[in-house]
């Protein structure tokens, strides 16, 4: 498995901001959910900044859906920002935007 994936996270009040770098596949998706689960009890909003992630596969998406479901159960929400057009289309087809939202910037969620 490729481990060419990095994640940087920050907490702002009830919001977890994660900035990813690399292929959102099994490894990437697992790392995102792992980071999310560390903070899940203290947050109800997650912003994923995908400026440095241009490729995603369906395994990576399954992890994101898992995170969306957990957030929904807790009345929370997932937000995406800096989406590559191809990834945006992928998320749309895979139904992610039924439960998550695309935003222009991290600040628009933090406000």
């Amino acid at each position: 498995m490729s481990t060419d994936f990095n994640i940087v996270s920050e907490i702002h009040n009830d919001t977890l901001v994660m900035k990813t770098d690399g292929y959102i596949n099994n490894t990437g998706g697992e790392q995102i959910v792992l980071e999310f689960s560390k903070h899940v009890s203290n947050i109800n909003k997650v912003v994923l900044d995908l400026a440095k992630s241009k490729v995603v596969n369906s395994i990576g998406i399954s992890y994101l859906l898992e995170m969306v479901e957990t957030l929904n159960q807790n009345d929370g929400k997932l937000y995406f920002t800096n989406l590559d057009p191809t990834i945006e289309k992928t998320f749309k087809i895979m139904g992610l935007f039924q439960f998550a939202e695309k935003v222009d910037s991290i600040d628009s969620v933090l406000k």
Partner: peptide
Amino acid sequence: LVFDLNEKILQLNNLID
């Protein structure tokens, strides 16, 4: 089933794009 169906649509769409 929905995920698998969406994945197939995604594959076809990606192939065309």
